[in-house]
């Protein structure tokens, strides 16, 4: 069939998870300026670091529940809510049909880096929505520490390890991470994430080896002694946020505070995280938008969404609905939109899909527009494009429109709050 303008037809098989890692290592763009390129994969699935891939992915219901808590936390932080209000949200219970066959990777992304001397490889989730990096450290056993697949990092075995002392600038630099002096004048930290997970331990310094040619001497990170939450499949987290404790902040002198990443569409393909590259004018092929910041949540990378189109038709949503800004977050799975924008997107998408009579499927957690594509060889969707200030437009492919067979968007807090 000839595709109507504004529509895209994809093979239904493209929604199925691949069982083998089909991608060779990605060829990340080589740009002038120093650049360390790390292989980036889905947290679970055939391309995940071999040591972790066999771990069972959390259920979709758990993933969406954790995602809802994270999104609510981010929204409250940007709105300047106090710390106590930030926590304690109760995500709506999600009932999920069991007959799913779709790609249910947990849609979080990891890189592998080595810590210490000699280096111990650690699988770390990349997170533009937080700053402090951490790994679990020996001695560390359940229940204080979750059962990670890779060897635990043992500071006592690393010749380049040092605990950060109390009172020094590094400890003071933790600021919002509840740094405090613990035993033997070491600098303790606590990080509480929006999905309810947490890590606490001793703030530390060691060599982080990113690639065979790039290492960060004296990298500051959390040596976690007690963690709780959905950490299956990772050994820790690599914070890429805007504040100083993040990897980006700590390597600004080397990589200029510029970085890029590509998140693979399927667990059977790979992407990359690249530190450095020329700052200034974006290379060819990019559409760029201004980076903004939120005084109440300085960690986040914020841009200004200005419009959405479905099937090539702009939605009639007032620009004021987007006035609150848009956080660019690798750790949030589903895009959240202000209610008026989401309602308009959902209505336009549903009416475009109606002409194809795909059977409806029950809502899935926060995703309320779902279809059952079983039995269809090909699926036709209206294109969805997000436009940002300065005209940068993200025209989404099918894998950016649907997830779990559902429209992969949800409503967030108040319009333009």
């Amino acid at each position: 069939a000839v595709e109507a303008p504004g529509y895209v037809t994809v093979s239904a098989a493209s929604f199925k998870p691949g069982s083998t890692c089909s991608a060779p290592d990605p060829v990340a763009p080589q740009r002038n300026g120093t650049s360390a390129v790390l292989r980036l994969t889905h947290r679970h699935g055939p391309c995940a670091p071999s040591r972790t891939s066999s771990l069972a992915a959390p259920s979709v219901a758990d993933t969406l529940r954790a995602d809802q808590r994270r999104a609510e936390y981010i929204l409250r932080r940007v709105s300047g809510a106090g710390a106590q209000q930030l926590l304690g949200s109760k995500a709506a219970a999600a009932t999920v049909p069991a007959n799913w066959g779709y790609d249910i990777g947990t849609l979080n992304y990891v890189v592998t880096a080595s810590l210490g001397t000699p280096g111990v490889a650690q699988t770390l989730e990349v997170d533009t929505g937080s700053d402090l990096s951490w790994v679990q450290c020996k001695p560390c056993s359940a229940p204080a520490c979750y059962n990670q697949k890779d060897p635990l990092f043992d500071p006592a075995q690393s010749s380049s390890y040092a605990a950060v002392p109390c009172g020094g600038s590094a400890c003071a630099g933790l600021g919002m991470y509840e740094s405090s002096c613990v035993s033997s004048a070491q600098c303790g930290y606590v990080v509480r994430y929006g999905d309810g997970s947490s890590t606490t331990g001793v703030y530390s310094s060691d060599t982080l080896t990113l690639t065979s040619t790039d290492a960060v001497q004296g990298f500051l990170f959390g040596c976690g002694r007690a963690q709780s939450g959905l950490f299956t499949g990772i050994d820790g987290l690599l914070g890429l946020g805007r504040l100083q404790p993040s990897l980006v902040g700590q390597t600004a002198g080397t990589y200029g505070g510029a970085f890029s990443y590509c998140l693979p569409t399927k667990p059977s393909t790979t992407g990359y995280l690249a530190l450095g590259g020329a700052s200034g004018a974006a290379p060819a092929g990019f559409s760029t938008t201004q980076l903004l910041s939120s005084p109440s949540a300085p960690t986040y990378y914020i841009v200004m969404l200005t419009g959405i189109s479905v099937g090539g038709q702009p939605l009639s949503v007032p620009a004021s609905a987007f006035a609150g800004g848009t956080v660019v977050d690798t750790g949030t799975v589903v895009t959240r939109l202000p209610p008026a924008a989401y309602a308009a997107l959902r209505s336009a998408f549903r009416s475009s899909m109606a002409s194809y009579s795909y059977p409806a499927a029950p809502p899935t957690g926060i995703l309320d527009t779902c279809y059952n594509f079983a039995g269809y060889g090909a699926v036709t969707l209206p294109t969805v494009a997000l436009t940002f200030s300065s005209g940068a437009t993200l025209t989404l492919g099918a894998d950016g429109i649907l997830s779990f067979g559902c429209l992969a968007f949800a409503a967030s807090g108040s319009d333009g709050g």
Partner: peptide, 28 residues
Amino acid sequence: MAILGNVQQRSFEVRIDGASVGFKPNSC
């Protein structure tokens, strides 16, 4: 307030420097 989630970022190279965020399609 909106959050651009990772489902919508997939396959784009997202480039962040001190002043801007750039998106390049079909990058991985």
